[in-house]
């Protein structure tokens, strides 16, 4: 199938998305060029689509993705693939703030660093960052894994729910209510299974796994008697 090329430039974003959606229906691979870091490119992509963004993109690229394979050649702005339920998003360079915010499935692979709040409020899925994850990454992550092969910025894994943050490098500081645990061999194998298709397995890594301290899970005693005092 021949590739469909869509030129962004200064054209209206709505029009470009309509062209992308139409191209998705053809089943051909899509190449979006001249992206100029524009926002909202490739919103709500359907499953099975392969789309490549040449250069850098702005905010919310690949937002609400439902199963497309998205690759961004260079950097992306805020909240790449926010709310994604399935699919595979690759960022060649730096991912801006809130990478994978509130995603509910799929995989995000960032080859550079990611900005602050990587994986904020994510509900499932995995984020792999080859570089360093920024400030307050993993904030309120409900489930899923954030895996940083580089280090982590300040307030790492702040107020996690049942999500996990894995860091192989230096951590500037931990957020509130975090426990750092020694992962078991099986758990490392699970992470390696995510890294394996990306060719990123390295057995020499010294993983630190961060999970919730669970102190902030309970506002008060769950004992029904205590409720009556309120």
């Amino acid at each position: 199938m021949s590739e469909i090329v869509i030129d962004v430039g200064k054209r209206p974003i709505r029009e470009i998305n309509e062209e992308i959606q139409a191209a998705c229906k053809t089943g051909s691979p899509i190449r979006v060029v001249n992206t100029l870091s524009r926002h909202n490119l490739g919103i709500g992509l359907p499953p099975g689509v392969r789309i490549h963004f040449e250069g850098s993109v702005g905010y919310y690229c690949g937002g609400l993705n439902t199963g497309a394979t998205v690759s961004i050649e260079r950097n992306c702005g805020w909240a790449v693939a926010e709310g994604m339920s399935a699919g595979h998003v690759t960022v060649g360079g730096y991912a801006g703030m809130s990478c994978g915010a509130a995603m509910t499935g799929g995989l995000i692979h960032v080859k550079g660093d990611s900005g602050p709040r990587c994986g904020v409020a994510m509900k499932a899925g995995n984020i792999v960052v080859e570089g360093k994850i920024g400030y307050q990454s993993g904030f309120m992550a409900h489930q899923g894994k954030i895996i940083a092969l580089g280090g982590a910025g300040h307030s790492c894994a702040d107020a996690l729910w049942a999500g996990e943050v894995w860091v192989a490098g230096e951590i500037d500081s931990l957020g509130v209510d975090v426990n750092v645990v020694e992962p078991t061999a099986e758990e490392v194998a699970e992470v390696d299974a995510i890294l394996e298709p990306l060719g990123l397995v390295d057995s020499s890594r010294n993983w630190r796994k961060m999970i919730s301290g669970q102190r902030l899970w309970y506002f008060q005693s769950r004992d029904a008697g205590a409720w009556l005092m309120i």
């Binding site: 950097n75 360079g93 730096y94 801006g96 703030m97 400030y135 307050q136």
Partner: peptide
């Protein structure tokens, strides 16, 4: 318009 090295001052 071409790709250049971008520095994001994103930290606190």
């Amino acid at each position: 318009p071409g790709e250049s090295e971008v520095i994001n001052y994103d930290g606190p």
